[in-house]
């Protein structure tokens, strides 16, 4: 039984990394949002499995938050926002998809090497979780730097936060305070972003961050 529990946890956490990779090569905003919803769904399953495996019922709350807010409410809200802004066209990527995927693989390898080495003494399940979580965090970062569009940067940031939730649930018995705060921070972040996007819309008629760069404070 123990082996099965571990395998399923491993599968779900690995699945999260895989979905992170899928996000890297999406070049349409709607598709990106759908993959993000899948990401959040896998996260919810993974957290729920951890709750079962660790016999920690409070983690079900975290799983529920992930399911309701991240897999449903946020994608729907962003979907509407994109429709209202009329920007559902292609995403420009700064670097091509090939190099991005290669860089992503490098990052995953890096996180395995670093985390598995330093957590040799920890419980194996937490160890795998942490290594995968770091991979998800780094892939989220990668996505943020390779995208120009403000919405896809935000999605990258949210996938990064999913990685953090995975790490937090993997750490056995971590106080709930932190998990809820992560969920709340996403919500607050969305509000901030919402305000931002609408302000950006008012002023520039685009959410391309490159358009923002033109207005740098210090032109010569």
């Amino acid at each position: 039984m123990d082996g099965l529990i571990f395998d399923i946890a491993h599968l779900l956490a690995g699945g999260l990394v895989l979905v992170s990779f899928m996000m890297l090569y999406q070049d349409r905003l709607y598709a990106l949002l759908n993959v993000y919803a899948l990401h959040a769904l896998v996260l919810a399953l993974s957290v729920a499995w951890q709750a079962f495996a660790q016999d920690a019922p409070h983690l079900y709350v975290t799983a529920l938050i992930a399911l309701v807010f991240k897999a449903i409410i946020i994608p729907v809200a962003l979907h509407r926002m994109i429709a209202r802004l009329g920007i559902h066209r292609e995403i420009e990527t700064v670097v091509g998809i090939g190099p991005t995927m290669l860089a992503g693989m490098g990052l995953v390898a890096l996180s395995m090497v670093v985390m598995l080495r330093v957590t040799a003494a920890a419980d194996p399940m937490a160890r795998e979780d942490l290594a995968f979580a770091l991979a998800v965090v780094l892939l989220g970062l990668l996505m943020m730097v390779t995208r120009r569009n403000a919405v896809s940067q935000v999605v990258g940031f949210m996938s990064l936060e999913n990685g953090l939730v995975l790490a937090a649930t993997g750490a056995r018995g971590m106080p709930l305070v932190v998990e809820i705060s992560v969920a709340f921070s996403i919500l607050i972040a969305l509000i901030v972003i919402g305000i931002m996007l609408f302000r950006i819309r008012e002023r520039f008629d685009t959410v391309d961050v490159h358009a923002l760069d033109r207005f740098r404070g210090e032109r010569r």
Binding site: L130, A133, L134, V137, L141, M144, A150, Q153, F157, L160, E161, L164, A167, A168, A171, M174, V178, V182, A189, V192, I193, M196, R199, I200, R203, F204, V209, L212, D213, F215, R216, G217
Partner: peptide, 27 residues
């Protein structure tokens, strides 16, 4: 203004990444 929005956006993105790394360190 344009500049203020750019500054806030940049601050938000970099600040959030920083804060996310800090959370990972805390975990």
């Amino acid at each position: 203004s344009h500049e203020a929005l750019e500054a806030a956006w940049k601050y938000f993105i970099l600040g959030s990444v920083g804060i996310a790394l800090a959370l990972f360190g805390t975990i």
